[in-house]
Amino acid sequence: MTAAASAAVLSGCAGMDKSASAGASGDPFATASFQKILKDDFVSKGQASVDRLKQTKAQYECSKYDYLGQPLPDAIRKEIETTAQSKVVYPKDGQYLGDWKAGLKIAEDGKGLQWNDKPGTPNGGNCLACHKMIANDPSQGNIGPELYHYAKLRGNSEAILKYTWARIYNSEAFNACSYMPPFGEHHILTEQQMKDVMALLMDPNSPVNK
């Protein structure tokens, strides 16, 4: 279960019980029924441990206000985004682009971090599950923004490179309640893997930009 998946599970479980106790405390995750669900229905298996159910501040606040049917307060949104921006680690060598062919494999690969995956093996990014990136590929998702012709439309300035890297590293830096996994912040992808995905988005020879 990825961090994003954990947030979705917790949000869904919280939505099962809109009891008076939740309304009184303002904390839907403090209800006895929700805590019972966590205790009874989730167990550690392999590398997928129950520790992943512990929410980040962004996951907690976004789930809570979504549950309450209220917009996320601007002050909390700004705090989450500013904190995420401050934690972005840019490439140590200053080079943002790797091999787009390797990046395509990462974008197509949804394996990694599940209980039956071997710990220490490279994770996939599964980018195509949410984004349209390649022309005439019916297997692509549409949950996230379309990325086809990414660099062709945006250019490859230093500002765009840094922005794109930060988006992949932790999209909460720009959208506090983003559903996109924080690939760098949570060490889902390595720095080299992130460079390869960057090349997929930026290289003019990549199918993304054809």
Rank of each mutant, 00 (worst) to 15 (best):
A5V: 15
L10F: 02
S11L: 14
S11P: 03
D17V: 11
S19R: 10
S19E: 08
A20N: 10
S21C: 05
S21A: 14
A22C: 15
G23H: 04
S25F: 08
F29I: 08
I37M: 11
L38P: 07
L38F: 01
D40L: 14
F42E: 07
V43F: 00
K45Q: 12
G46I: 00
Q47Y: 05
S49T: 11
V50F: 02
L53C: 04
L53I: 04
L53S: 07
L53G: 06
L53F: 09
K54D: 14
K57N: 00
Q59H: 08
Q59Y: 06
Y60I: 05
Y60S: 05
E61V: 11
E61I: 10
S63P: 07
K64I: 03
D66T: 14
P73V: 15
P73W: 12
I76P: 01
E79Q: 11
I80T: 01
T82E: 15
V89C: 01
V89N: 09
D93S: 01
D93H: 06
Q95S: 04
L97F: 05
K101L: 05
K105P: 04
D109V: 15
G110V: 08
G110Y: 13
G112L: 06
W115G: 04
N116Q: 15
N116K: 15
D117K: 05
P119C: 08
T121E: 15
P122N: 03
N123F: 08
N123V: 11
N123E: 12
G124Y: 09
N126A: 13
C127V: 11
C127E: 08
C130D: 00
H131Y: 07
M133S: 06
N136L: 10
P138Q: 05
Q140A: 01
Q140N: 02
N142P: 00
N142W: 01
I143F: 10
P145W: 02
L147A: 12
Y148M: 10
Y150K: 03
A151T: 12
R154I: 06
R154V: 11
I160H: 09
Y163W: 11
A166W: 00
I168W: 03
N170V: 06
N170L: 02
A173T: 14
N175Q: 04
S178T: 10
S178Y: 04
Y179C: 10
M180A: 09
P181V: 03
P182W: 04
H186D: 14
H187L: 03
I188R: 13
E191I: 06
Q192G: 03
Q193I: 11
Q193K: 13
M194Y: 00
K195Q: 10
K195F: 03
K195I: 05
V197H: 01
A199E: 03
A199C: 03
A199V: 12
L201K: 13
M202R: 04
M202Q: 09
P204N: 10
V208S: 09
V208M: 06
N209G: 03
